[in-house]
Amino acid sequence: MPRATPVLGPAAVDVTLDVNGHARAIHIRPQRTLLDALREDLGLMGAKKVCDEGTCGACTVLVDGRPVYACMTLAVATAGRAVETVEGLAHDGGLHPVQEAFIAHDAFQCGFCTPGQIMSVVALLRARPDVTADDVKRAVTGNLCRCGAYPNIVAAALAAAKRKK
């Protein structure tokens, strides 16, 4: 006999998320998006809430290493999967090479899209260290920048890729 699958909710349930390598227990209703869980329940404000409809990419985080829109992802559905946010990139007080490259290349103005842009670039460079400008543009197609910092975002990503090699 296969064991019965538990039905969660609609009342709040205990869920344990794996966020930036740490197990984080939260008590949420199933309709909580991953974005709201990160921001409201876990205090991780890096992923931004802008369109909240899977259009702008400001909420981009990595799930099992691949970029997703946290605003269109249910937190309960990510239990057991590895979630990474921009807060998890810095180590031992040092910024991640992609973060450093964004600063060095002035790859933002208002900065609101930046955590999402960075997560998309981090995922790209982990998968393929050798990238072209077209690869970078394709990787951040789903991350809108209203300031128009795109040329510098591409330059930053290429510089980070070069440094990584």
Binding site: G9, P10, Q31, G54, M72, A77
Partner: peptide
């Protein structure tokens, strides 16, 4: 979003059984 219950199906048969009236199947959710 209105409140809903969430259940993860382990097989096609289980999913089909769980998909009663008022239910919706969730894949990517986009």
């Amino acid at each position: 979003m209105k409140p809903f219950a969430y259940v993860r199906a382990g097989s096609v048969a289980e999913a089909a059984r769980l998909l009663g009236k008022g239910s919706a199947a969730l894949a990517g959710g986009t």
